[in-house]
């Protein structure tokens, strides 16, 4: 029997908020490119680059794809495969590097 759910839904942001998010994305990208040319500890730069990529990913998914505002099940459909993929990639790389060392 079909059960009626009331999907948790908040109203999407307006054009002004979208433009602000767009500006933030451009600023993060500019910082990333700037970091690339800095002579510093490579490990630090790599972690900063990864963190900035993650920030951009979450901003686009959360605000432009509305995962922050739409039903939570859409987010589950998207992030569960992502977590599986990251876990699989890390495990595969660890195994590959230990076997070929």
């Amino acid at each position: 029997m079909a059960t009626e759910h009331v999907a948790a839904h908040k109203e999407h942001p307006g054009p002004r908020q979208y433009v602000i998010i767009g500006v933030i994305l451009v600023v993060i990208t500019a910082i990333e490119v700037g970091l690339f040319y800095i002579q510093a500890t490579p490990a630090l730069i790599v972690w900063l680059l990864l963190a900035s990529s993650l920030a951009k990913f979450l901003l686009v998914a959360g605000f432009f794809m509305h995962l922050r505002f739409d039903d939570r099940r859409f987010a589950i459909l998207f992030f569960v495969p992502l977590l599986i993929m990251v876990a699989l990639a890390v495990a595969l790389m660890a195994m590959f590097f230990s076997l070929t060392r």
Partner: peptide, 8 residues
């Protein structure tokens, strides 16, 4: 990135 902004 700007195309994503235009899309939204």
């Amino acid at each position: 990135l700007m195309s994503s902004l235009a899309m939204v």
